[in-house]
Design a protein around this nucleic acid. Structure first.
Lengths: 250, 250
DNA sequence: CGTTTGGTTGAAATGTGTCAAACTTTGTGG
DNA sequence: CCACAAAGTTTGACACATTTCAACCAAACG
Protein backbone atom coordinates (compact mmCIF):
# COMPACT_ATOMS: atom_id res chain seq x y z
CA UNK A 1 0.00 0.00 0.00
CA UNK A 2 2.94 2.33 0.51
CA UNK A 3 3.48 3.06 -3.15
CA UNK A 4 -0.22 3.14 -3.80
CA UNK A 5 -0.72 5.74 -1.16
CA UNK A 6 1.46 8.20 -3.01
CA UNK A 7 -0.64 7.84 -6.13
CA UNK A 8 -3.89 8.19 -4.27
CA UNK A 9 -2.79 11.23 -2.37
CA UNK A 10 -1.75 12.90 -5.59
CA UNK A 11 -5.36 12.85 -6.72
CA UNK A 12 -7.70 15.66 -5.78
CA UNK A 13 -10.18 14.94 -2.99
CA UNK A 14 -12.96 15.14 -5.54
CA UNK A 15 -11.36 12.47 -7.72
CA UNK A 16 -10.69 10.24 -4.75
CA UNK A 17 -14.29 10.56 -3.71
CA UNK A 18 -15.46 9.87 -7.25
CA UNK A 19 -13.47 6.66 -7.22
CA UNK A 20 -15.28 5.54 -4.11
CA UNK A 21 -18.63 6.17 -5.79
CA UNK A 22 -18.12 4.95 -9.37
CA UNK A 23 -15.26 3.62 -11.49
CA UNK A 24 -14.34 6.71 -13.45
CA UNK A 25 -12.56 6.81 -16.79
CA UNK A 26 -9.30 8.73 -17.16
CA UNK A 27 -11.15 11.46 -19.01
CA UNK A 28 -13.78 11.78 -16.33
CA UNK A 29 -11.13 11.99 -13.67
CA UNK A 30 -9.38 14.72 -15.57
CA UNK A 31 -12.56 16.74 -15.91
CA UNK A 32 -13.01 16.76 -12.16
CA UNK A 33 -9.32 17.29 -11.46
CA UNK A 34 -9.40 20.42 -13.62
CA UNK A 35 -12.76 21.61 -12.39
CA UNK A 36 -12.61 25.40 -12.13
CA UNK A 37 -13.12 26.18 -8.50
CA UNK A 38 -12.56 29.10 -6.25
CA UNK A 39 -10.64 27.86 -3.25
CA UNK A 40 -11.31 29.43 0.12
CA UNK A 41 -10.13 28.78 3.65
CA UNK A 42 -12.29 28.86 6.73
CA UNK A 43 -11.40 28.75 10.38
CA UNK A 44 -13.08 26.34 12.76
CA UNK A 45 -16.74 26.85 13.66
CA UNK A 46 -17.64 29.14 10.81
CA UNK A 47 -20.64 29.02 8.56
CA UNK A 48 -20.04 28.33 4.89
CA UNK A 49 -23.66 28.58 3.81
CA UNK A 50 -26.78 29.23 5.83
CA UNK A 51 -30.32 27.94 5.89
CA UNK A 52 -32.37 30.19 3.64
CA UNK A 53 -29.51 30.98 1.25
CA UNK A 54 -30.10 30.67 -2.49
CA UNK A 55 -26.65 29.73 -3.73
CA UNK A 56 -25.54 29.89 -7.34
CA UNK A 57 -22.65 27.59 -6.59
CA UNK A 58 -21.85 24.53 -4.53
CA UNK A 59 -18.66 23.68 -2.73
CA UNK A 60 -16.37 20.72 -2.31
CA UNK A 61 -14.64 20.07 0.99
CA UNK A 62 -10.93 19.84 0.19
CA UNK A 63 -9.54 19.63 3.71
CA UNK A 64 -11.00 19.52 7.20
CA UNK A 65 -14.34 18.50 8.67
CA UNK A 66 -17.62 20.27 8.06
CA UNK A 67 -21.16 19.68 9.28
CA UNK A 68 -24.66 20.02 7.93
CA UNK A 69 -26.83 21.26 10.75
CA UNK A 70 -29.98 23.05 11.68
CA UNK A 71 -31.06 25.03 14.72
CA UNK A 72 -34.57 24.37 15.97
CA UNK A 73 -36.96 26.72 17.72
CA UNK A 74 -35.60 26.43 21.22
CA UNK A 75 -31.99 26.87 20.15
CA UNK A 76 -31.01 23.23 20.07
CA UNK A 77 -28.75 22.12 17.23
CA UNK A 78 -29.11 18.98 15.19
CA UNK A 79 -26.11 17.90 13.17
CA UNK A 80 -27.25 15.84 10.21
CA UNK A 81 -23.93 15.01 8.59
CA UNK A 82 -20.21 15.19 9.03
CA UNK A 83 -18.45 16.07 5.80
CA UNK A 84 -14.93 15.06 4.89
CA UNK A 85 -12.62 15.70 1.95
CA UNK A 86 -14.35 15.11 -1.36
CA UNK A 87 -17.88 15.69 -0.06
CA UNK A 88 -20.13 18.26 -1.67
CA UNK A 89 -22.40 19.13 1.25
CA UNK A 90 -24.75 21.47 -0.61
CA UNK A 91 -24.90 19.68 -3.94
CA UNK A 92 -28.66 19.63 -3.49
CA UNK A 93 -28.72 23.37 -4.14
CA UNK A 94 -28.12 22.49 -7.79
CA UNK A 95 -31.80 21.50 -7.89
CA UNK A 96 -33.37 23.04 -4.81
CA UNK A 97 -33.23 26.83 -4.94
CA UNK A 98 -33.40 27.46 -1.24
CA UNK A 99 -31.14 25.81 1.31
CA UNK A 100 -33.03 24.10 4.09
CA UNK A 101 -30.03 23.70 6.35
CA UNK A 102 -26.74 25.35 7.15
CA UNK A 103 -23.27 24.01 6.55
CA UNK A 104 -20.37 25.05 8.74
CA UNK A 105 -16.86 23.99 9.67
CA UNK A 106 -15.89 22.22 12.85
CA UNK A 107 -12.17 22.35 12.05
CA UNK A 108 -10.24 24.72 9.81
CA UNK A 109 -11.29 23.83 6.27
CA UNK A 110 -10.26 24.41 2.71
CA UNK A 111 -13.20 24.34 0.34
CA UNK A 112 -13.61 24.82 -3.40
CA UNK A 113 -16.62 26.67 -4.76
CA UNK A 114 -17.93 25.55 -8.13
CA UNK A 115 -20.51 27.53 -10.07
CA UNK A 116 -23.74 25.71 -10.72
CA UNK A 117 -23.65 26.47 -14.42
CA UNK A 118 -20.25 24.81 -14.64
CA UNK A 119 -21.72 21.73 -12.97
CA UNK A 120 -24.70 21.80 -15.29
CA UNK A 121 -22.43 21.93 -18.31
CA UNK A 122 -20.38 18.99 -17.07
CA UNK A 123 -23.51 16.98 -16.34
CA UNK A 124 -24.68 17.51 -19.89
CA UNK A 125 -21.37 16.59 -21.45
CA UNK A 126 -20.47 13.72 -19.13
CA UNK A 127 -23.60 11.75 -18.26
CA UNK A 128 -21.64 9.36 -16.10
CA UNK A 129 -20.45 12.24 -13.93
CA UNK A 130 -24.03 13.46 -13.70
CA UNK A 131 -25.04 9.98 -12.63
CA UNK A 132 -22.22 9.88 -10.10
CA UNK A 133 -23.32 13.18 -8.60
CA UNK A 134 -26.90 12.01 -8.38
CA UNK A 135 -25.60 8.80 -6.87
CA UNK A 136 -23.67 10.77 -4.27
CA UNK A 137 -26.79 12.60 -3.18
CA UNK A 138 -28.58 9.26 -2.93
CA UNK A 139 -25.84 7.88 -0.72
CA UNK A 140 -26.14 10.96 1.45
CA UNK A 141 -29.83 10.19 1.77
CA UNK A 142 -29.02 6.60 2.71
CA UNK A 143 -26.75 7.92 5.44
CA UNK A 144 -29.52 10.16 6.74
CA UNK A 145 -31.81 7.16 6.90
CA UNK A 146 -29.28 5.21 8.90
CA UNK A 147 -28.76 8.06 11.30
CA UNK A 148 -32.48 8.30 11.74
CA UNK A 149 -32.59 4.61 12.52
CA UNK A 150 -29.76 4.98 14.97
CA UNK A 151 -31.23 7.96 16.75
CA UNK A 152 -34.74 6.58 16.71
CA UNK A 153 -34.16 3.02 17.81
CA UNK A 154 -30.73 2.55 19.35
CA UNK A 155 -29.51 3.35 22.82
CA UNK A 156 -26.60 5.67 23.36
CA UNK A 157 -23.95 2.96 23.29
CA UNK A 158 -25.06 1.65 19.92
CA UNK A 159 -25.55 5.11 18.48
CA UNK A 160 -22.06 6.24 19.29
CA UNK A 161 -20.56 2.96 18.13
CA UNK A 162 -22.41 3.22 14.84
CA UNK A 163 -21.22 6.76 14.26
CA UNK A 164 -17.64 5.74 14.94
CA UNK A 165 -17.90 2.82 12.51
CA UNK A 166 -19.40 4.97 9.81
CA UNK A 167 -16.87 7.72 10.16
CA UNK A 168 -13.88 5.39 10.10
CA UNK A 169 -15.29 3.57 7.09
CA UNK A 170 -15.89 6.76 5.15
CA UNK A 171 -12.43 8.06 5.96
CA UNK A 172 -10.92 4.77 4.87
CA UNK A 173 -12.80 4.90 1.59
CA UNK A 174 -11.01 8.10 0.63
CA UNK A 175 -7.67 7.04 2.05
CA UNK A 176 -7.77 9.09 5.24
CA UNK A 177 -7.54 6.19 7.67
CA UNK A 178 -4.90 3.56 8.11
CA UNK A 179 -6.24 0.27 9.32
CA UNK A 180 -8.81 1.50 11.75
CA UNK A 181 -7.14 4.64 13.00
CA UNK A 182 -7.88 8.14 11.88
CA UNK A 183 -8.11 11.77 12.81
CA UNK A 184 -11.26 12.36 14.76
CA UNK A 185 -11.59 16.06 15.49
CA UNK A 186 -15.24 15.82 16.48
CA UNK A 187 -15.97 17.05 19.98
CA UNK A 188 -18.27 15.29 22.38
CA UNK A 189 -20.72 18.16 22.12
CA UNK A 190 -20.82 17.66 18.37
CA UNK A 191 -21.33 13.93 18.75
CA UNK A 192 -24.21 14.74 21.05
CA UNK A 193 -25.79 17.16 18.61
CA UNK A 194 -25.45 14.55 15.89
CA UNK A 195 -26.95 11.70 17.87
CA UNK A 196 -29.55 13.49 19.92
CA UNK A 197 -27.68 13.05 23.19
CA UNK A 198 -26.44 15.43 25.85
CA UNK A 199 -22.71 16.09 26.18
CA UNK A 200 -22.70 14.51 29.58
CA UNK A 201 -24.17 11.32 28.32
CA UNK A 202 -21.88 11.18 25.31
CA UNK A 203 -18.99 11.46 27.69
CA UNK A 204 -20.22 8.60 29.82
CA UNK A 205 -21.01 6.46 26.82
CA UNK A 206 -17.58 7.06 25.35
CA UNK A 207 -16.09 5.90 28.61
CA UNK A 208 -18.18 2.75 28.45
CA UNK A 209 -16.98 2.09 24.92
CA UNK A 210 -13.40 2.61 26.02
CA UNK A 211 -13.83 0.33 29.00
CA UNK A 212 -15.25 -2.31 26.72
CA UNK A 213 -11.85 -2.23 25.03
CA UNK A 214 -13.28 -1.18 21.69
CA UNK A 215 -11.50 2.11 21.04
CA UNK A 216 -8.88 4.58 22.07
CA UNK A 217 -9.97 8.17 21.53
CA UNK A 218 -7.63 10.90 22.70
CA UNK A 219 -6.67 14.35 21.48
CA UNK A 220 -8.47 14.12 18.21
CA UNK A 221 -7.18 10.69 17.22
CA UNK A 222 -9.35 7.63 17.06
CA UNK A 223 -7.98 4.14 17.11
CA UNK A 224 -10.34 1.20 16.91
CA UNK A 225 -8.95 -1.66 18.94
CA UNK A 226 -11.71 -4.15 18.23
CA UNK A 227 -13.33 -3.51 14.88
CA UNK A 228 -15.59 -6.53 14.97
CA UNK A 229 -16.67 -5.64 18.46
CA UNK A 230 -17.39 -2.05 17.53
CA UNK A 231 -19.34 -3.13 14.47
CA UNK A 232 -21.38 -5.50 16.58
CA UNK A 233 -22.02 -2.83 19.19
CA UNK A 234 -23.23 -0.40 16.57
CA UNK A 235 -25.02 -3.06 14.51
CA UNK A 236 -23.01 -1.63 11.63
CA UNK A 237 -23.30 -2.97 8.11
CA UNK A 238 -21.60 -0.72 5.55
CA UNK A 239 -23.83 -1.74 2.64
CA UNK A 240 -25.74 1.51 2.87
CA UNK A 241 -22.60 3.49 2.07
CA UNK A 242 -22.58 1.84 -1.36
CA UNK A 243 -18.81 2.01 -1.62
CA UNK A 244 -17.13 0.88 -4.79
CA UNK A 245 -14.01 -0.19 -2.97
CA UNK A 246 -15.43 -2.79 -0.69
CA UNK A 247 -12.18 -3.47 1.15
CA UNK A 248 -12.68 -0.16 2.88
CA UNK A 249 -15.56 -1.70 4.74
CA UNK A 250 -13.82 -4.87 5.86
CA UNK B 1 -61.75 24.73 -6.60
CA UNK B 2 -64.67 22.48 -7.50
CA UNK B 3 -64.06 22.52 -11.21
CA UNK B 4 -60.34 22.49 -10.74
CA UNK B 5 -60.57 19.40 -8.61
CA UNK B 6 -62.07 17.46 -11.45
CA UNK B 7 -59.16 18.32 -13.70
CA UNK B 8 -56.60 17.49 -11.08
CA UNK B 9 -58.14 14.19 -10.19
CA UNK B 10 -58.14 13.20 -13.84
CA UNK B 11 -54.35 13.35 -13.81
CA UNK B 12 -52.31 10.35 -12.79
CA UNK B 13 -50.76 10.44 -9.34
CA UNK B 14 -47.37 10.68 -10.99
CA UNK B 15 -48.36 13.78 -12.93
CA UNK B 16 -49.93 15.36 -9.88
CA UNK B 17 -46.75 14.74 -7.96
CA UNK B 18 -44.65 16.10 -10.81
CA UNK B 19 -46.68 19.30 -10.70
CA UNK B 20 -45.86 19.72 -7.05
CA UNK B 21 -42.14 19.36 -7.81
CA UNK B 22 -41.66 21.28 -11.05
CA UNK B 23 -43.85 23.10 -13.59
CA UNK B 24 -44.08 20.48 -16.31
CA UNK B 25 -44.85 21.12 -19.98
CA UNK B 26 -47.80 19.40 -21.61
CA UNK B 27 -45.43 17.05 -23.40
CA UNK B 28 -43.64 16.12 -20.21
CA UNK B 29 -46.94 15.46 -18.50
CA UNK B 30 -47.98 13.22 -21.32
CA UNK B 31 -44.78 11.22 -21.16
CA UNK B 32 -45.42 10.44 -17.54
CA UNK B 33 -49.13 9.87 -18.01
CA UNK B 34 -48.34 7.25 -20.65
CA UNK B 35 -45.45 5.72 -18.79
CA UNK B 36 -45.54 1.99 -19.34
CA UNK B 37 -46.05 0.46 -15.95
CA UNK B 38 -47.14 -2.84 -14.58
CA UNK B 39 -49.85 -2.19 -12.06
CA UNK B 40 -50.11 -4.43 -9.03
CA UNK B 41 -52.25 -4.47 -5.91
CA UNK B 42 -51.04 -5.25 -2.44
CA UNK B 43 -52.92 -5.86 0.74
CA UNK B 44 -52.06 -4.02 3.93
CA UNK B 45 -48.80 -4.81 5.71
CA UNK B 46 -47.05 -6.49 2.83
CA UNK B 47 -43.54 -5.99 1.58
CA UNK B 48 -43.12 -4.57 -1.89
CA UNK B 49 -39.33 -4.69 -1.94
CA UNK B 50 -36.89 -5.83 0.70
CA UNK B 51 -33.57 -4.67 2.01
CA UNK B 52 -30.89 -6.48 0.02
CA UNK B 53 -32.93 -6.69 -3.18
CA UNK B 54 -31.32 -5.67 -6.47
CA UNK B 55 -34.31 -4.38 -8.39
CA UNK B 56 -34.35 -3.78 -12.13
CA UNK B 57 -37.41 -1.58 -11.76
CA UNK B 58 -38.85 1.02 -9.43
CA UNK B 59 -42.44 1.58 -8.49
CA UNK B 60 -44.86 4.45 -8.12
CA UNK B 61 -47.45 4.47 -5.39
CA UNK B 62 -50.79 4.96 -7.13
CA UNK B 63 -53.12 4.48 -4.18
CA UNK B 64 -52.70 3.85 -0.48
CA UNK B 65 -49.97 4.46 2.06
CA UNK B 66 -46.58 2.76 2.05
CA UNK B 67 -43.55 2.99 4.30
CA UNK B 68 -39.81 2.83 3.94
CA UNK B 69 -38.46 0.98 6.94
CA UNK B 70 -35.65 -1.05 8.34
CA UNK B 71 -35.41 -3.64 11.10
CA UNK B 72 -32.42 -3.36 13.39
CA UNK B 73 -30.56 -6.08 15.22
CA UNK B 74 -32.86 -6.48 18.19
CA UNK B 75 -35.99 -6.58 16.07
CA UNK B 76 -37.05 -2.97 16.45
CA UNK B 77 -38.43 -1.24 13.40
CA UNK B 78 -37.61 2.25 12.23
CA UNK B 79 -39.94 3.79 9.69
CA UNK B 80 -38.08 6.37 7.65
CA UNK B 81 -40.83 7.61 5.39
CA UNK B 82 -44.53 7.45 4.70
CA UNK B 83 -45.28 7.30 1.00
CA UNK B 84 -48.42 8.58 -0.63
CA UNK B 85 -49.79 8.61 -4.17
CA UNK B 86 -47.21 9.81 -6.66
CA UNK B 87 -44.19 8.88 -4.58
CA UNK B 88 -41.50 6.62 -5.98
CA UNK B 89 -40.10 5.12 -2.78
CA UNK B 90 -37.25 3.16 -4.34
CA UNK B 91 -36.23 5.57 -7.06
CA UNK B 92 -32.76 5.41 -5.57
CA UNK B 93 -32.40 1.88 -6.92
CA UNK B 94 -31.97 3.49 -10.32
CA UNK B 95 -28.45 4.38 -9.19
CA UNK B 96 -27.77 2.19 -6.17
CA UNK B 97 -27.73 -1.48 -7.12
CA UNK B 98 -28.59 -2.85 -3.72
CA UNK B 99 -31.53 -1.68 -1.61
CA UNK B 100 -30.55 -0.63 1.87
CA UNK B 101 -34.09 -0.61 3.23
CA UNK B 102 -37.43 -2.29 2.71
CA UNK B 103 -40.63 -0.77 1.46
CA UNK B 104 -43.99 -2.14 2.48
CA UNK B 105 -47.63 -1.19 2.57
CA UNK B 106 -49.52 -0.07 5.65
CA UNK B 107 -52.86 0.06 3.83
CA UNK B 108 -54.00 -1.76 0.71
CA UNK B 109 -52.04 -0.20 -2.13
CA UNK B 110 -52.00 -0.01 -5.87
CA UNK B 111 -48.52 0.48 -7.27
CA UNK B 112 -47.07 0.73 -10.76
CA UNK B 113 -43.74 -0.88 -11.56
CA UNK B 114 -41.56 0.86 -14.14
CA UNK B 115 -38.48 -0.75 -15.62
CA UNK B 116 -35.25 1.08 -14.95
CA UNK B 117 -34.26 1.08 -18.60
CA UNK B 118 -37.52 2.85 -19.42
CA UNK B 119 -36.69 5.47 -16.84
CA UNK B 120 -33.16 5.79 -18.20
CA UNK B 121 -34.48 6.34 -21.69
CA UNK B 122 -36.89 9.02 -20.50
CA UNK B 123 -34.16 10.74 -18.52
CA UNK B 124 -32.03 10.92 -21.64
CA UNK B 125 -34.78 12.22 -23.83
CA UNK B 126 -36.37 14.59 -21.33
CA UNK B 127 -33.68 16.24 -19.25
CA UNK B 128 -36.23 18.21 -17.28
CA UNK B 129 -37.89 14.99 -16.18
CA UNK B 130 -34.50 13.64 -15.19
CA UNK B 131 -33.93 16.81 -13.20
CA UNK B 132 -37.35 16.47 -11.61
CA UNK B 133 -36.63 12.92 -10.55
CA UNK B 134 -33.29 13.90 -9.11
CA UNK B 135 -35.06 16.76 -7.41
CA UNK B 136 -37.58 14.39 -5.90
CA UNK B 137 -34.85 12.27 -4.38
CA UNK B 138 -33.30 15.44 -2.97
CA UNK B 139 -36.58 16.43 -1.39
CA UNK B 140 -36.82 12.96 0.12
CA UNK B 141 -33.39 13.54 1.61
CA UNK B 142 -34.55 16.88 2.99
CA UNK B 143 -37.45 15.11 4.64
CA UNK B 144 -35.09 12.56 6.19
CA UNK B 145 -33.02 15.41 7.60
CA UNK B 146 -36.09 16.98 9.15
CA UNK B 147 -37.17 13.70 10.69
CA UNK B 148 -33.71 13.27 12.08
CA UNK B 149 -33.93 16.73 13.59
CA UNK B 150 -37.32 15.97 15.02
CA UNK B 151 -36.33 12.64 16.51
CA UNK B 152 -32.99 13.92 17.73
CA UNK B 153 -33.97 17.17 19.33
CA UNK B 154 -37.71 17.40 19.90
CA UNK B 155 -39.82 15.96 22.65
CA UNK B 156 -42.69 13.65 21.87
CA UNK B 157 -45.29 16.39 21.62
CA UNK B 158 -43.32 18.33 19.04
CA UNK B 159 -42.35 15.22 17.12
CA UNK B 160 -45.90 14.06 16.68
CA UNK B 161 -47.10 17.56 15.85
CA UNK B 162 -44.40 17.91 13.22
CA UNK B 163 -45.27 14.61 11.62
CA UNK B 164 -48.93 15.57 11.45
CA UNK B 165 -48.08 18.91 9.85
CA UNK B 166 -45.82 17.31 7.30
CA UNK B 167 -48.28 14.62 6.36
CA UNK B 168 -51.18 17.00 5.94
CA UNK B 169 -49.04 19.36 3.89
CA UNK B 170 -47.83 16.62 1.57
CA UNK B 171 -51.33 15.28 1.11
CA UNK B 172 -52.56 18.77 0.32
CA UNK B 173 -49.84 19.25 -2.25
CA UNK B 174 -51.19 16.38 -4.30
CA UNK B 175 -54.83 17.22 -3.68
CA UNK B 176 -55.57 14.55 -1.09
CA UNK B 177 -56.56 16.90 1.72
CA UNK B 178 -59.29 19.46 1.92
CA UNK B 179 -58.42 22.39 4.10
CA UNK B 180 -56.62 20.60 6.86
CA UNK B 181 -58.49 17.35 6.93
CA UNK B 182 -57.36 14.12 5.36
CA UNK B 183 -57.30 10.38 5.56
CA UNK B 184 -54.80 9.32 8.14
CA UNK B 185 -54.58 5.53 8.17
CA UNK B 186 -51.38 5.46 10.18
CA UNK B 187 -51.62 3.51 13.42
CA UNK B 188 -50.14 4.69 16.67
CA UNK B 189 -47.63 1.86 16.53
CA UNK B 190 -46.49 3.12 13.15
CA UNK B 191 -46.21 6.68 14.40
CA UNK B 192 -44.08 5.34 17.21
CA UNK B 193 -41.81 3.42 14.87
CA UNK B 194 -41.43 6.53 12.75
CA UNK B 195 -40.65 8.88 15.60
CA UNK B 196 -38.68 6.64 17.90
CA UNK B 197 -41.41 6.44 20.53
CA UNK B 198 -43.30 3.59 22.17
CA UNK B 199 -46.93 3.00 21.30
CA UNK B 200 -47.96 3.83 24.82
CA UNK B 201 -46.25 7.17 24.70
CA UNK B 202 -47.62 8.00 21.26
CA UNK B 203 -51.06 7.31 22.62
CA UNK B 204 -50.58 9.64 25.55
CA UNK B 205 -49.02 12.32 23.40
CA UNK B 206 -51.88 12.15 20.94
CA UNK B 207 -54.27 12.64 23.83
CA UNK B 208 -52.31 15.69 24.90
CA UNK B 209 -52.48 17.11 21.39
CA UNK B 210 -56.22 16.48 21.30
CA UNK B 211 -56.70 18.06 24.68
CA UNK B 212 -54.78 21.09 23.48
CA UNK B 213 -57.56 21.44 20.93
CA UNK B 214 -55.22 21.07 17.98
CA UNK B 215 -56.66 18.04 16.21
CA UNK B 216 -59.40 15.48 15.93
CA UNK B 217 -58.09 12.05 14.99
CA UNK B 218 -60.58 9.23 14.86
CA UNK B 219 -61.05 6.13 12.76
CA UNK B 220 -58.39 6.97 10.25
CA UNK B 221 -59.47 10.56 9.67
CA UNK B 222 -57.41 13.52 10.75
CA UNK B 223 -58.86 16.96 11.12
CA UNK B 224 -56.63 19.81 12.18
CA UNK B 225 -58.62 22.23 14.29
CA UNK B 226 -55.85 24.75 14.90
CA UNK B 227 -53.33 24.75 12.07
CA UNK B 228 -51.30 27.63 13.42
CA UNK B 229 -51.20 26.02 16.81
CA UNK B 230 -50.13 22.68 15.41
CA UNK B 231 -47.43 24.31 13.31
CA UNK B 232 -46.14 26.13 16.34
CA UNK B 233 -46.18 22.98 18.43
CA UNK B 234 -44.20 21.09 15.80
CA UNK B 235 -41.98 24.05 14.92
CA UNK B 236 -43.07 23.30 11.37
CA UNK B 237 -41.84 25.32 8.40
CA UNK B 238 -42.66 23.68 5.06
CA UNK B 239 -39.75 25.22 3.18
CA UNK B 240 -37.88 21.93 3.26
CA UNK B 241 -40.62 20.25 1.23
CA UNK B 242 -39.72 22.56 -1.67
CA UNK B 243 -43.26 22.56 -3.00
CA UNK B 244 -43.99 24.36 -6.21
CA UNK B 245 -47.54 25.13 -5.17
CA UNK B 246 -46.89 27.17 -2.10
CA UNK B 247 -50.54 27.56 -1.17
CA UNK B 248 -50.48 23.96 -0.07
CA UNK B 249 -48.31 24.99 2.82
CA UNK B 250 -50.38 27.94 4.00
C1' DC C 1 1.26 31.11 31.70
C1' DG C 2 -3.26 32.63 31.87
C1' DT C 3 -7.39 31.81 29.24
C1' DT C 4 -10.33 29.27 26.65
C1' DT C 5 -12.17 25.06 25.05
C1' DG C 6 -13.19 20.52 25.79
C1' DG C 7 -13.61 16.69 28.97
C1' DT C 8 -15.13 14.51 33.44
C1' DT C 9 -17.89 13.70 37.68
C1' DG C 10 -21.90 13.46 40.95
C1' DA C 11 -26.59 14.03 42.27
C1' DA C 12 -31.17 14.88 41.32
C1' DA C 13 -35.02 15.47 38.00
C1' DT C 14 -37.74 13.69 34.20
C1' DG C 15 -39.32 12.06 29.80
C1' DT C 16 -40.11 7.92 27.93
C1' DG C 17 -40.08 2.75 27.95
C1' DT C 18 -41.87 -1.56 29.64
C1' DC C 19 -45.25 -4.62 31.34
C1' DA C 20 -49.71 -6.19 31.70
C1' DA C 21 -54.37 -5.83 31.23
C1' DA C 22 -58.73 -4.02 29.55
C1' DC C 23 -61.30 -1.74 26.25
C1' DT C 24 -62.94 -0.44 21.53
C1' DT C 25 -63.24 -0.61 16.85
C1' DT C 26 -62.91 -2.99 12.56
C1' DG C 27 -63.33 -6.64 9.56
C1' DT C 28 -65.08 -11.15 8.43
C1' DG C 29 -67.17 -15.61 8.10
C1' DG C 30 -71.09 -18.16 9.36
C1' DC D 1 -76.64 -9.22 10.16
C1' DC D 2 -74.85 -11.07 14.15
C1' DA D 3 -70.83 -12.99 16.53
C1' DC D 4 -66.40 -13.49 17.00
C1' DA D 5 -61.59 -12.66 16.17
C1' DA D 6 -58.12 -9.60 15.28
C1' DA D 7 -56.22 -5.21 15.30
C1' DG D 8 -55.78 -0.98 17.37
C1' DT D 9 -56.30 2.06 21.43
C1' DT D 10 -56.24 3.22 26.25
C1' DT D 11 -54.89 2.92 31.26
C1' DG D 12 -52.04 2.42 35.44
C1' DA D 13 -47.90 1.39 37.86
C1' DC D 14 -43.20 1.09 37.76
C1' DA D 15 -38.43 1.05 35.86
C1' DC D 16 -34.79 3.32 33.76
C1' DA D 17 -32.08 5.68 30.18
C1' DT D 18 -30.97 10.11 29.54
C1' DT D 19 -31.13 15.17 30.80
C1' DT D 20 -30.09 18.91 33.57
C1' DC D 21 -27.45 21.47 36.78
C1' DA D 22 -23.29 22.63 38.71
C1' DA D 23 -18.97 22.07 39.48
C1' DC D 24 -14.15 20.80 38.57
C1' DC D 25 -10.30 19.21 35.81
C1' DA D 26 -7.19 18.77 31.72
C1' DA D 27 -5.49 20.06 27.55
C1' DA D 28 -4.71 23.24 23.85
C1' DC D 29 -3.18 27.71 22.48
C1' DG D 30 -1.60 32.27 21.59
Amino acid sequence: MQTGTAVISSASPLVRKLRSVITPSAEEEEVLAKLPMQVASFGADQNIVREGDRPSRSFVVLEGFAITYSIIGDGKRQIMAFHIAGDVPDLQSLHLEILDNSVGTITPCKVGFVQHDVLWAICQQYPRIAAALWRETLIDAAIFRRWLTSVGRREAFGRVAHLLCETVTRLRSIGLAEDHSCDFPITQAEIGDALGLSVVHVNRTLQDIREAGLIVLRSGKLQVLDWQGLKAAGDFDPTYLHLKNREAAA
